[in-house]
Amino acid sequence: MRDPADLYELTGDALRVPEGLHLVAGLTGFADAGGAVSQFNEYLLDRLDSTVVATFDADVLLDYRARRPIIYFDQDHLTNYQASTLRLYLATDEIGQPFLFLAGFEPDFRWEQFTAAVLELVLRFKVASTTWVHAIPMPVPHTRPIGVTVSGNRSDLIETMSVWRPHTQVPSNVLHLVEYRLSASGATVVGFVLLVPHYLADTEFPSTALSALESTSAATGLIFPTDHLREQNREFVARIDEQVAENPELGKLVGTLEARYDAYMEGSTLRSPLTDEDGELPSADEIAAELEKFLAIRRTKDDGSAS
């Protein structure tokens, strides 16, 4: 295997990283339901003080044809090229606690070399624990808390927080591989998979970012500012609830999801929130169709084109 260090370049600030910090990771690209990871990353980088300590080589790791960077066409010339980045940051939480934050795109290539590079950095900085977040769509209602499936070797978090523990094969992302290798090496690692309402999977649902922050806090003791995000979530949910109240069919579908969710959480014979042997599960398309008008109105307002 190629030298893992070939994939990244340390900055001068790497010399001032304290030993024994928590590493938090969120990589975008695959199945980011509700925009959970992208919102999580953006919120932390916008709200917290941070500095880059390592930059990964995008030209080696990224398939530009599959995920093209954005450039702005200004009438007759090009400007504001937005390069895709994958970086390790030294950040501080709301009360000044430092931690490492790995954020950016999920690599398309060289997973084994990238994973070895992350493990190399974990050893270099004597990382205390690694926590990562991911999000998948599930047939659960937006009126209930975002649940999580917990993996890794933090049995305390698995016992207290993991609401769904399936036996199943899943398409992996690179942080699954990182967790697998860290766990095999005996390092402390935990992954949180957020279970996002499937009919909101293609939106930016603020509740998903809140759940990612809260899960990370539970694993690390880090404190994050969330007031602004909570206000955004209240407004978002209020608009959805308005649509539900005005549409009896949509209300019935959401009510069915609520009943199945509540029965599962109360320990009924349902195998999981995904299944119900006695009835049909409302599809994402059914609910999404009812919400289409609402989302179109929301995008119009966000663009400033509505009166």
Rank of each mutant, 00 (worst) to 15 (best):
S155Q: 08
T168Y: 01
W111R: 09
W164I: 12
A128R: 10
Q113K: 03
A117I: 01
G152H: 07
R124W: 01
T149A: 12
R67Y: 10
S84C: 04
V178A: 05
L61D: 05
T85E: 15
A66K: 15
V163L: 07
T149W: 01
F73Q: 08
D76L: 07
Y89E: 06
Y72V: 14
Q169N: 07
L100E: 11
L177V: 06
A117R: 05
L61V: 05
T160R: 13
N173P: 00
P166H: 11
G152T: 04
E120G: 11
Q75S: 10
R144C: 03
P69N: 06
D108H: 13
R144N: 08
Q113T: 14
P141L: 03
A116W: 02
P166G: 10
D76P: 00
P139G: 09
R124M: 01
P145L: 05
G152F: 11
F105D: 07
D59P: 03
N80E: 12
D108T: 08
R144K: 14
F99Q: 03
Y89Q: 02
N173Y: 07
F101L: 15
I71Q: 14
H134F: 15
V127C: 04
F56Q: 00
S172T: 13
P145H: 12
V118R: 01
L123M: 07
V53Y: 02
Y72I: 11
D57Y: 01
H134A: 13
A103N: 07
L61P: 10
L175T: 14
R68D: 11
M138S: 13
T115S: 14
R68K: 15
D156F: 02
V118P: 07
F114K: 11
Y64W: 10
V122P: 04
D93P: 05
L121Q: 06
A66F: 04
I146S: 00
S151C: 05
L119A: 12
P107W: 06
F73M: 01
L121T: 11
P141K: 00
D76E: 09
H77C: 03
A135S: 13
L177E: 14
I136V: 15
Q75M: 08
R110P: 01
F73K: 14
T149P: 01
R67G: 03
A116T: 10
A54K: 02
H176P: 00
L62C: 07
I95P: 00
M161R: 15
E112D: 14
A91D: 13
Q97E: 10
Y64Q: 06
V127S: 05
M138T: 12
A83D: 15
T55F: 01
R181T: 09
I146M: 09
Y64D: 06
V53S: 02
E112K: 10
I95M: 10
L62Y: 11
S151D: 06
P145I: 05
Q82R: 12
W132I: 01
R67V: 14
G96L: 15
S151G: 13
P137L: 06
L157N: 04
A103R: 06
R144L: 08
E106W: 13
F99D: 02
P139R: 03
T85P: 00
I95S: 03
H176Y: 12
D156N: 09
V127G: 06
P137Y: 09
F125E: 12
T131G: 00
M138K: 06
R65C: 00
D93V: 10
R65L: 05
M138V: 12
A83I: 04
T160I: 04
P139H: 03
R165P: 01
H77F: 14
V163Y: 06
